[in-house]
């Protein structure tokens, strides 16, 4: 695979809890290529969301970026002024969140919440922006969009709200969409539709996606490349097919083995669900663990086991 210039390139990103507190991210480095879908997997608390929020510049105190760089098109986001960063946010780099039920403002109509994107980033007047908002609702396949634009979030189902969130995020045709567990809070039947929508819209516009999820199935379906995170470190990065067929890092092997599989009981008899700690070798986590494993051996450290 030829390597085009990355759209976003994160280098040695360190995030701390408080000025002198513990590290939450221990130097994350990853590249996102234009138009690709990059999956970030890991357990709860492994730092997936914090990575996404750091790129957006939405970390909440006491979390703070302690070092490293995030380059987007030749500019280091961490060095930009607040104003410049804000202008990029939503316009060039957008984000959708896990909880569609609470992520929308309850007292503003959804049409206006979408229209706000055109008002702040495109300098449109509200009348024109509202028309564009209806189009945006239409593009995320919300039925009778003109009517729904006047509705309030509480009048929509979770799946519909997440579609509204997608409409907001993609309103300005961003270069990168950070989707933080976009379907975790949704019904399984709705999940597939929402993921398909994200996939179609982003493919059509050439929008790169950083998909944060702990759902390996979702990652397998959506992503070209996958990064595996554990305890604030990126421990393995591979093409999706390779990762699932030939996981290199022992932790990744454990992660894959911990998936409950349909039919496993027929094969192996009735067993307890596998827990990660039981299968990951002791050396594979913590300070002795290899820091990053890639097929090309980039930044390779000691590979245990």
């Amino acid at each position: 695979m030829s390597n085009p210039d990355p759209l976003l390139s994160v280098r040695d990103l360190r995030v701390k809890l408080g000025r002198h507190g513990a590290h939450i991210l221990h130097g994350i480095s990853l590249d996102i290529l234009p138009g690709e879908t990059y999956g970030l997997v890991g357990e709860s608390g492994s730092g997936k969301s914090v990575t996404g929020l750091s790129i957006m510049g939405l970390l909440k105190r006491p979390l703070n970026v302690a070092g490293g760089s995030i380059h987007y098109q030749d500019q280091n986001l961490l060095k930009l002024s607040r104003r410049a960063r804000r202008d990029l946010r939503g316009d060039r780099i957008a984000m959708i969140f896990q909880e569609p039920m609470t992520a929308l403002n309850p007292v503003v109509s959804i049409g206006n919440q979408i229209a706000e994107m055109f008002v702040i980033h495109r300098g449109m007047g509200w009348t024109e922006a509202r028309l564009r908002a209806v189009e945006a609702l239409d593009s995320v396949q919300v039925p009778s969009p003109a009517e729904r634009a006047r509705a309030y979030p509480h009048q929509l189902s979770g799946g519909m709200r997440q579609r509204v969130m997608i409409a907001i995020a993609l309103a300005c045709r961003p270069d990168l969409l950070i989707a933080d567990e976009p379907t975790t809070a949704l019904d399984v039947t709705v999940q597939a539709g929402v993921l398909k929508l994200i996939h179609e819209l982003c493919t059509a516009e050439g929008t790169a996606v950083l998909l944060v999820s702990h759902d390996l199935g979702v990652i397998a379906n959506m992503c070209q490349r996958v990064g595996v995170m554990d305890r604030g470190r990126l421990i393995e990065e591979q093409d999706t097919a390779a990762l699932f067929s030939n996981p290199l890092h022992p932790y990744t092997r454990g992660l894959l083995a911990a998936r409950p599989r349909l039919g496993s009981r027929v094969e192996g008899g009735r067993k307890r669900l596998t827990e990660l700690d039981e299968i990951v070798p002791d050396g594979a986590r913590g300070h002795d663990a290899p820091t990053l494993v890639t097929p090309r051996g980039r930044r390779e450290a000691r590979v245990a086991a």
Binding site: G90, D91, M95, F97, E99, P106, E116, M117, I120
Partner: peptide
């Protein structure tokens, strides 16, 4: 609230955030 984070992710400025998103919810 989550929707304030959403508004920030949309690139809403702080004055606008207070005016358009926070005030009305606080008024309730």
């Amino acid at each position: 609230a989550d929707f304030v984070r959403t508004a920030r992710a949309k690139g809403v400025s702080e004055p606008r955030l207070v005016r358009a998103h926070i005030t009305r919810n606080v008024l309730v």
